[in-house]
Design a protein around this nucleic acid. Structure first.
Lengths: 206, 206
DNA sequence: ACAGCCATGTAAGTCGTTACATGATTGC
DNA sequence: GCAATCATGTAACGACTTACATGGCTGT
């Protein structure tokens, strides 16, 4: 149940509405966890019921209510518990890689298209994450400013260092993916040059 | 629905029982996709209903039936369709990294334990995947032998190359994770040496 | 006889995706 | 007046996890 902890972590920086959270989650580059609003709103409600957060409600129009959530002492304790706990590493489940292992069912052009898309995707994210690392290191994002403003200055160095390091990990991953896709493109060219049979039919032999 | 395609891909190498598949999935290093048997058995049944695979059944003891599944022409076509189709890259959802970004809620010793576990995990998998790459390149695993025996020799080079490349991607990922964890350990040492405050209480300031 | 692995399932519950739905405010 | 964006939800379905459950075969 990491969505809950992602939300808790975010709200320790700054009290926010559900909408603000969805923005940070799916529009900004700020996060290592994706979730759609249809998952976020109900989870915030459940967290409120469980006493991890409290909402300050104000009316919005005739019907709606706007809720600004902030983390309670219980929520803070739960976040601490989760961070301290060792969680077993996730199991591999990598559809992109799985597919790449069976490209003999596809033709060379499409295989190249496949690796090109991979390349472009990770080049983009490498840039986004790298930019975010810079901004974190410069303590320049609104969120890190808020977080630092709410914590003891003696902790600031560690708070920033941990976040910078986490995003650097994502940058490194992205670089590895870019290199892998480039290698894939070279491989397809070589296979084609070596005159491997048009693989459209490969695998259908029996 | 990639489990379905992972199963299809596997069964194109060689007809197998559900049990064999679970072995390949969770005991051997052979795969880039994890799934427990409780997910595999029902999925195989559904795939049979959908005409993607057929079972050759033989009785086992008084009650049980042993089923050996093989891929039909429809199944083969479905696999081809899936491989050719461009799938959007997965969204980030990385609990380990999320946690690492909030280690200020933990103490230095436990933060180190966290990175050590990460390091050991990926060192292990790097070895396992690297070994698998070697064995694939040497065409030495039972599964790749079977697969090659059932396909046109003109395709063998591509079939092996794609699989080798896929697993090399996992090896590269694992190396990046190892380097990241080592960097994390250095970071914690530096933070401690620099005398950042005991972070047990960090973040609880308000 | 017992251990260990072969072999196959069900069930309950959680997590996540996709689509549907509604209304308010702000700026042009 | 309209578009864009703010803001908040529900519903259905599918994917995945964890635990429970059963029985066969093989070697010692």
């Amino acid at each position: 149940m990491s969505l809950r902890h992602a939300l808790l972590a975010l709200l320790t920086a700054q009290p926010m509405s559900g909408y603000d959270v969805t923005k940070v989650f799916d529009r900004s580059v700020t996060f290592v966890w994706h979730a759609p609003h249809s998952q976020i709103y109900p989870e915030l409600r459940r967290m409120e019921i469980d006493g991890l957060i409290v909402a300050e409600s104000s009316p919005r129009g005739k019907h709606g209510i706007k809720r600004i959530y902030s983390v309670t002492a219980t929520g803070r304790e739960e976040l601490r518990r989760w961070v301290c706990e060792q969680t077993p590493p996730e199991q591999v489940r990598d559809a992109q890689r799985l597919k790449s292992a069976y490209l003999e069912f596809d033709d060379f052009d499409n295989a190249r298209r496949h690796f090109k898309a991979h390349l472009e995707h990770y080049e983009l994210w490498e840039r986004l994450w790298a930019t975010h690392v810079e901004q974190l290191a410069a303590r320049a994002t609104p969120l890190i400013r808020e977080r630092l403003a709410r914590t003891d200055p003696a902790d600031h160095e560690a708070i920033v260092a941990y976040k910078v390091h986490a995003y650097q990990g994502l940058v490194a991953q992205a670089r590895a993916e870019v290199a892998w896709a480039e290698e894939g493109l070279r491989m397809v060219d070589e296979l084609e040059a070596a005159g491997s049979r048009a693989p459209d039919v490969a695998g259908s032999a029996r």
